[in-house]
Every structure is written in structure tokens, then in C-alpha cells.
Amino acid sequence: MTSLAAVAAYVPAGRVPIEEPAGRLGLSAMQVKVFRRYHRLGEVARDPGGGLGDLLRGALDRLEGLRGQEHRVRYVLHARTFPTVTPYGHDPLRRLCEEYGLGHATAFSVGHHACASGLLALDAAGRLLAADGDPDGLALVLTGEKAFTGEAQLVPDTSFFGEGAAACLVAASGERDRMLCYATELRGEFDSEEPELALEFQRIYAEALAAAITAAVGRAGLAVDGIAAILPHNVNHQAWKQVCRILGYPRERVLLDHVTGTGHLFCADSFVNYRTAKERGLLRPGEPYVVAAAGAGLGAAFSAMVLVH
């Protein structure tokens, strides 16, 4: 059963108030007020002097479980929100593999689920390892992107993107953080920039994400009220308030610590929240928890994964 062997996260120390990207993107004072007061967004994480390689390096340097195990890593997957994350001709993933002794591994990117691609990458890593049949094999899932374009700085009417990264070492089996179930619903009808569809996406968002969580928990043979914690993607407080109301789940058990101070860290949210939950003692041995995310781009994806710590 797929398990998380080690998880590390890196969020740069730099912060900018949301007014800074909002001004560059032409948002009105009223729109900023809505983000602050309604969505409870305040600052976003930024590393103005570093590139994507520096972000991912920050996470890799903190992944102590990788030390001495590099030879066991068969796959390196970079989960992306956007199809293009660096200027043409730059390949930081390949350079990092060589730098960290992973040049022998098969390295590739995973996308098309937008901000839910991190969960897709975990599932893909587990499937690849299971198909290999090597009980000692490992996969490395990397997440993190730079907010280097206007589109990569703002989720319209929803959130601001921040910069951060995470590294997760995945094993085919293990005693802790075992994956019980992964569920995702793809909605291809949202592959459009029509304003009407954007409004419809906002309308069905909470219900669709709640349905994905319910499906994953049910397939794992559990009930929602038996889930110890939900580790969300950090879009905003209001969205998760709605999801919790639909689920009948206590909002205080959804870890929203990083929403106000870092912004939405692309696909890295789940892993940053995992590190915080573990450090705060919110994940106890033998208890199930949910990691959930939604993404829109080439259609929409609503995803949830149930693991047991």
C-alpha cells in the first residue's frame, strides 16, 4: 500500500501584502477589501531573488529521509499547476536530479489537474512503484512554482498564489501515512474562459469538492466524522467554510493556518500543511486524515485522498 516515507516543505521568509500584486493586476480597492475581509487573505510568500530551482532546492535540502537513499529513487515527479513553469530552455528539474544524485531516475512532470496535480502525482508514484515490483524502490514527488506571470499570481475572485515548495518521498508500502483511497472527479466542461462558466465553477465548487471528499472516505470504508483532520489547499477560509457546512465537518479540524500569511502555494499546499499538522501533533498514529484539493485550467479537477498516519 502506497505510503509517504518522508515529507519536507520550504516556504521562503519573504512576504508581500496582497495589495502589491493586486495593484499590478489592476484590482480595485473594493476587490482587495473582499479578499482581506471575506476570504481572510493578507500576505503572500515571495522569494524575489530566487528561481524555481531555488524553491525546489529549499525543500530537497530539508528532506532528511532522502539522505543515503538516493540510489533507491526510481522516479522523480514534478507536480505542476501550470503547463509552463519556467522560461523556454530552462530545465531546473533535470539539473536538480543531477545535483542530488538522482540522475539515474526517470524524471517527468505531472499536470492537467492544476492545483490538484500533487495528489495525482502521489497516486501515479504509488502505481509506478507497484508495477515495478521492487519493494525497495522509491519515488520523489516535488511541488512548487514561481508566481512569475500575472496568471500565476491570482486565482480570480478566489485567492492569490504564493511561492513555496515541498518534497515527498513515496514508497510502495510502509507503516505510516498509508494511502487508503484516492478519488478525483474531472469536469471537462470547464475548459473555457467564458465568464458564465467561471460563475458556474464558483457555484458548484464547494459541493463538488465535498463530493470528492465523501467519495474517497466512503471508498476507504470510513465515515466523514471519523476523519481526524483535513489538510486543504489554501485557497481561502470562505471556500472551506462552505465545504465543511456541506460535509457536516468541524471547521476547526481543517488546517487553515497558512491561508492568511502565505497564500495559495500551488500544488505544495498539501505537503506544507502536512508538515504543520505533524509538528502540531494533529496527526496521531492509526488515525485517518484527508488531503483535498481542487484545480481549474484544462477543465476542473476535484480530488481527495485518505491516508492513515
Results as ranks from 00 to 15, higher is better:
198 A>E: 10
122 L>P: 10
237 H>W: 12
194 E>P: 00
235 V>E: 02
172 A>M: 06
181 C>D: 14
129 L>Y: 03
141 V>D: 09
205 Y>T: 10
121 A>I: 09
122 L>C: 11
219 R>Q: 15
189 E>A: 10
162 G>C: 04
137 G>V: 10
229 A>T: 12
188 G>I: 09
165 A>W: 04
169 L>G: 03
176 R>M: 05
148 F>L: 11
149 T>M: 05
175 E>D: 13
160 F>I: 10
129 L>E: 05
226 G>N: 03
168 C>T: 15
126 G>V: 06
133 G>S: 05
161 F>Y: 12
155 V>S: 02
179 M>I: 13
144 G>W: 01
216 A>C: 12
236 N>H: 02
160 F>L: 03
195 P>A: 09
168 C>S: 15
236 N>V: 01
164 G>T: 01
211 A>L: 13
213 I>P: 09
219 R>L: 14
158 T>Y: 00
145 E>Y: 01
206 A>C: 11
182 Y>N: 11
181 C>T: 12
228 A>G: 07
125 A>W: 07
150 G>W: 00
121 A>Q: 08
153 Q>E: 14
136 D>I: 00
204 I>Q: 14
206 A>T: 11
231 L>P: 07
123 D>K: 14
126 G>C: 08
223 A>W: 00
195 P>R: 02
127 R>T: 10
213 I>R: 08
199 L>V: 06
129 L>G: 07
205 Y>Q: 14
130 A>S: 12
149 T>Q: 07
182 Y>V: 15
136 D>F: 04
222 L>I: 09
234 N>W: 03
130 A>N: 09
126 G>D: 05
165 A>L: 02
233 H>P: 06
153 Q>F: 00
136 D>G: 15
208 A>V: 08
199 L>D: 13
